[in-house]
Write a protein that binds this DNA or RNA. Structure first.
Lengths: 315, 315
DNA sequence: GTTGAATTCGACAAAATCGTCCATACAATG
DNA sequence: CATTGTATGGACGATTTTGTCGAATTCAAC
């Protein structure tokens, strides 16, 4: 079930351990089929769609009936992932994990690109913040996949494919975000020699969702290039993702040098990532470390608020 | 929904948040294409435009089918934004060099993400094959950008950003392609230690456009992982992208070993990329080198033809 | 249990689409 | 020039879908 206001995807848990049947509400089925709730109600009342009733009179459509209905009538699906995810749950004879992270991990391990994308997309469309999606399901699922299998070829294959699927999903999320060429500019990437591009892509997606105009330089970008790009594009913000730097000990000096170099331009530098030792960073007025996308989001919101109040940041 | 009087697209406020509907009504599609509803209805009834029906008989056109139709018939888009192609609409604003490669290069150098995406999308929509797009504008523009500036920080920044913009564009192109889970599977990536992901992404996009179900393992993937993924996913084809391998001399042995390992499964191995010395490869029945995406496309079409004619390849 | 927010119900009005028929435009042909 | 064939766009009542509202129900947290 997709909840619009709570912003979470919740799957019904059946009290019976066996023979569970997922029941769809009119809203969920309407969303999956791309029609209005009124139509679902009418079809159920006409009898063409067999719907059960709760004691209070609410319609509930068993998943199997929904699938039969779609197939019999040759209906097109607007959002197959709703039915699809439930389908996985039905096949496994147990509900999909209520936890979105577990659900995503299972889909990624199964190599189910479409439904994995669908899960992230439906989270986004149902109002979950990009920060929550990235800090939650995406980060968790990839961390677990990475940890469990980091040594053998099959594990590497799973991890690489999972990363690609997440990258696809993030690119599609970004295509839903409005673009504003007049928005303040942000530039970023991973440090030179750091091959992980997903952290930087995640930061780019987050900043785009926060209204920035984003230039992602991707993996293995020298700090000098970040500085140059920031200068040329008149960026207000630089993000640096640290995942697997070749020389962790040099990271603090590198980012500190970057922060000092761009300080005269009034540029803020934010650093984050799994490979970052935040405590090792020197304290500079325009250098900020964050452990999560939520923190990055909070920071840029703070910037925006200060800017709109004093006019200093956006000027 | 498209308002007739204002001529603008207005989204229902109570339904899901922003996003393009994946099922189009006749009115929406007519507005997007700048034709009458009657024409849409007629095309759908003739079968040249495959439309699903609602329970009550209203036509609904899946977005992917609408895009296929536009591409096949070389139709102009009057209001591309209705189809989620606002990048294409933005492209119309100002004149471009007649040469697509030059135009793309200029847009990438200017960091104009939107118009760069729009250019590639409009090439796709006007019927240009994915292979031609990749071998032409994308390859040319990136090659020139890479050659001109490969040493200084500004050049690296430009190249990284251009690569990211192209990656965005390819991901969006892929989102236009129909997905078929029953299609033959293809697996691929760049060799271990080779950090360039774009060549692999390009190959994945091309194969998707040729009807394959694609699993892209991305940059720096060990051959053992490619083999394992091919085995697990029952792939029919492996692509290997060679851009900047750490030890070029070992490449022939690596891919030859891969080809031999998967030969018993009847898997074909295709190798390509700017860093490949095709003549150094050993001759094996299931190992193929190609210099361009057009060659890769031709090869897989040959595979498909042979398979459908003799049943030997797909058996 | 009780409570409160979110969801769904039922019924109605409003809007969109259907199928069909016909007028127009244009090119090819005799 | 007249005729034929073909593709397009518009008009129409009938049907289907969608949006809206107060009241009732559900669900999770207390």
């Amino acid at each position: 079930m997709v909840s619009e206001t709570t912003g979470r995807t919740e799957w019904k848990k059946s009290s019976r351990p066996s023979g569970v049947e997922s029941l769809l509400t009119t809203k969920d089925l309407a969303y999956a089929l791309g029609v209005s709730e009124s139509s679902i109600k009418r079809w159920a009342d006409e009898g063409v769609l067999r719907a059960a009733r709760t004691v209070g009179g609410h319609r509930r459509v068993p998943l199997a009936e929904a699938i039969r209905f779609v197939r019999d009538r040759r209906l097109a699906l607007a959002h197959a992932e709703v039915l699809g995810l439930s389908d996985v749950a039905a096949l496994r004879a147990e509900p999909m994990p209520a936890n979105d992270s577990e659900a995503l991990r299972e889909l990624l391990l199964a190599g189910d690109e479409g439904r994995a994308r669908g899960l992230l997309q439906s989270l986004f469309l149902s109002g979950t913040s990009v920060a929550s999606i990235l800090d939650g399901p995406v980060r968790e699922a990839l961390r677990e996949i990475g940890e469990l299998w980091h040594h053998d070829p099959a594990g590497i294959a799973l991890e690489h494919r999972a990363t690609d699927v997440c990258a696809q999903a993030l690119h599609r999320l970004r295509s839903f975000l409005p673009e504003n060429p007049d928005a303040p500019m942000a530039v970023g990437g991973s440090l030179e020699g750091d091959p992980y591009f997903l952290g930087s892509l995640a930061a780019a997606t987050l900043l785009a969702s926060e209204g920035y105009c984003v230039a992602n330089l991707g993996a293995s970008t020298p700090v000098a290039s970040l500085e140059e790009a920031a200068r040329r594009l008149s960026a207000r913000l630089i993000w640096v993702n640290i995942s697997s730097p070749p020389e962790p000990a040099r990271v603090p000096a590198l980012v500190a040098g970057l922060a000092r170099a761009v300080a005269p331009m009034g540029v803020q530098v934010t650093v984050g990532g799994s490979g970052l030792d935040a405590d090792a960073l020197p304290r500079l007025p325009n250098l900020h470390a964050g452990r999560s996308m939520a923190e990055l989001a909070a920071f840029v919101r703070g910037l925006a608020s200060a800017g709109s109040a004093a006019g200093g940041v956006t000027s």
